[in-house]
């Protein structure tokens, strides 16, 4: 018999349980989170997780929210465990999106100064890495990605901005993100993308999923404005690269 499909489970209040998949932030732990989330979604769709009303995957944890008068923590964990034991070898094939960025963010000069790089070097480094989407959260469709090369790591801003420009591409700590809307934000702003991460008119409304990979590339202002107009009307939509083209697992 195989061991448990997770490393630890922690009760969170009377209506949730947090499942931990390892103590550190790495791709393998995150892959197990995403598989467990997929299993949970499948069980929910089949009506096999009665009483469960929410699942929140993050880097190395999965929070499951339920009505404690309709089910129990043990019943939820047992159902998920048996699904993972049966189908736990399934792999999630990540897609790769190439995301255009107009690198003219407010914090770009400061990021360059504080990392001891030139602005061009910051852009080159940022656009040279495949970033894995560890989770989608904070705001609808917002990808939370890693890992940022050490040379670009900076602590978050001392005080968060009340509202960042929509579709800002930003970095903070070891993370990279795109703010879909004008939300509060504590990350350093590198630029903006014309790509729309969340659009209710679209099915599915969220462009990408955890496990997918983002690769940024620089564009100029004119191209940014042209693409922004096309993406905004839904006339154009960012498609993932065809499978097989240098896909990162």
């Amino acid at each position: 018999m195989r061991s448990l499909p997770w490393s630890n489970t922690l009760p969170v209040g009377d209506a949730a349980v947090l499942i931990e998949f390892g103590q550190v932030l790495d791709v393998a732990a995150n892959a197990r989170v995403l598989l467990a989330t997929r299993m949970a979604q499948r069980l929910l769709a089949d009506g096999a997780l009665p009483g469960v009303w929410g699942t929140i995957p993050s880097y190395n944890t999965l929070l499951i929210e339920f009505d404690p008068l309709a089910t129990t923590r043990d019943a939820v964990l047992a159902a998920l465990r048996s699904a993972l034991m049966q189908g736990g070898d399934e792999t999630i094939a990540g897609r790769r999106f190439r995301v255009p960025v107009w690198y003219a963010g407010e914090d770009l000069p400061e990021v360059a100064a504080r990392t001891g790089l030139t602005v061009d070097e910051v852009i080159t480094l940022h656009a040279a890495v495949d970033f894995r989407i560890f989770t989608v959260g904070f705001a609808p469709g917002q990808p939370i990605c890693g890992m940022l090369p050490d040379a670009l790591r900076l602590p978050r801003r001392g005080s968060p901005r009340v509202a960042v420009p929509p579709r800002s591409v930003a970095l903070g700590g070891h993370q990279v993100t795109i703010y879909p809307t004008a939300s509060p934000g504590g990350f350093h702003l590198l630029g903006r993308t014309p790509v729309v991460p969340f659009n209710l008119e679209r099915i599915p409304p969220v462009l990408w999923a955890p496990g997918d990979v983002l690769r940024f590339y620089p564009i100029g202002r004119e191209q940014y404005e042209h693409l922004a107009a096309a993406f905004a009307t839904g006339e154009e939509m960012l498609a993932p690269e065809p499978p097989g083209s240098a896909l990162l697992a």
């Binding site: 209506a15 947090l18 932030l25 880097y59 929210e65």
Partner: peptide, 11 residues
């Protein structure tokens, strides 16, 4: 603790 995680209502 720097690794973000899902937050329960009432946390």
């Amino acid at each position: 603790r720097e690794i973000s995680e899902g937050m329960a209502i009432g946390a």
